[in-house]
Nucleic acid binder design. Structure first.
Length: 348
DNA sequence: AAGGGTACCAACCGCCACCGC
DNA sequence: AGCGGTGGCGGTTGGTACCCT
């Protein structure tokens, strides 16, 4: 018999978080910083398990989370990265600094998977149209054909990405941590490979201010709500050196000042900044300068990429490729044509 | 206006890797 | 080296909002 789940304990509350609970959690993290989740319920009196606290923080309360309204660029990036990495949402999320793995996973499951299926179906329908004349070939075989076609494209994408990675790595293979792109992964993106693989994050600006764009729920839990509920969350005056309790507020302030762009532009800005910084990740010092050192130290064990600690990640080439991919409409890049030539309706 | 169906997303669950003892 | 604790991850579920008839 294994260890019982922590949430099975009697008296552990489940379900949606209340504003009060959020405030308690945020206050505690402001004071102690994230981490040591085991002690959070004990020290805060929250009737939540440590996992729930961690999840709540990393997915919703953590500063710099952008929510809702995935841009086309983000969509494409997710699609490519999913093809490349499989359902490794945390790894994918590391390339979308403002998004959580949960958010990306949800978006994939609710939007992108359907889009791709639809596209696949359409493609299949077209092939049916072409093939069905004078032919009674089974639909399954036709589906298989279109699927094969799609998979070939996918494989082409993956192959090109791998090639790009190889090129990049051959150019600079020192101090590089290879993302796992083993044949087994590329052959079967959904195959389980060992967790917690270090996928270095791309360059880019720090997480921007929380973007609330679609809150339809009664309590759209977010940092913004916390900001309303907890004045110190945002409005703490910036101090040069103090306890971590100010860090969250200063982070938000400084980030807001640094990146005041609206949410719709946030990602493009981030991407562009990332691209501009491609040649030298240390350029992120510009970004990190906007974040007080105590802030970065406070959040250094965040699940999201630590900008300050980002040592020239090896995937800048990949990211550049993805970015080029995003601008392929202008340049009529062959890669995009390969990947999306029949997906015009996909990103409408 | 009401009821049913669907879409979306926050949260939970179980597994697994890492780390300290 | 082995073991247990902890945190991270991906899959799944349950609840709510929205849409359609």
């Amino acid at each position: 018999m294994g260890r019982p789940p922590c949430c099975d304990k009697i008296g552990v509350k489940k379900g949606p978080w209340t504003p009060e609970e959020d405030i308690i959690l945020v206050s505690y993290i402001q004071e102690h910083g994230p981490g040591n989740w085991r002690s959070v319920p004990t020290n805060t009196g929250l009737l939540r398990c440590s996992k729930s606290c961690r999840l709540r923080w990393t997915n919703y309360l953590r500063p710099g989370i952008k929510r809702g309204n995935f841009t086309d660029q983000e969509e494409k990036m997710i699609i490519h990265l999913q093809a490349l990495l499989g359902n490794r949402w945390a790894a994918i999320a590391s390339y979308l600094p403002q998004r959580t793995d949960n958010d990306i996973k949800n978006y994939w499951n609710t939007h992108l998977k359907k889009k791709l299926n639809k596209m696949q179906t359409n493609s299949s329908g077209q092939e049916n149209h072409h093939r069905s004349r004078g032919s009674n070939s089974s639909s399954s075989s036709e589906t298989a054909m279109s699927k094969g076609k799609w998979e070939r494209r996918l494989q082409t994408d993956i192959h090109m990405a791998k090639q790009a990675l190889c090129d990049a790595l051959s150019l600079d293979n020192k101090s590089i941590i290879l993302p796992e792109l083993s044949p087994s992964v590329t052959a079967n993106p959904n195959s389980q490979i060992h967790r917690q693989t270090v996928i270095p994050p791309p360059p880019g600006p720090p997480p921007g201010p929380p973007q609330i764009s679609h809150s339809t729920t009664t309590y759209a839990s977010s940092a913004e709500n916390i900001a309303r509920l907890l004045p110190n969350w945002i409005n703490k005056p910036q101090k040069s050196s103090h306890t971590s309790s100010e860090s969250i507020g200063t982070t938000q302030n400084s980030v807001k000042e640094q990146f005041p762009s609206p949410s719709s532009e946030g990602f493009e800005t981030s991407l562009q900044a990332g691209l501009n910084n491609n040649s030298n990740y240390s350029n992120n010092s510009d970004v990190s300068q906007s974040i007080s050192p105590e802030t970065t130290s406070l959040f250094q064990d965040e699940s999201k990429p630590n900008i300050e600690n980002a040592q020239l990640p090896p995937l800048c080439f990949l990211e550049k490729w993805l970015l080029e991919d995003a601008t392929a409409q202008e340049h009529e890049d062959n890669l995009m044509n390969l990947s999306f030539e029949e997906t015009d309706g996909l990103f409408d």
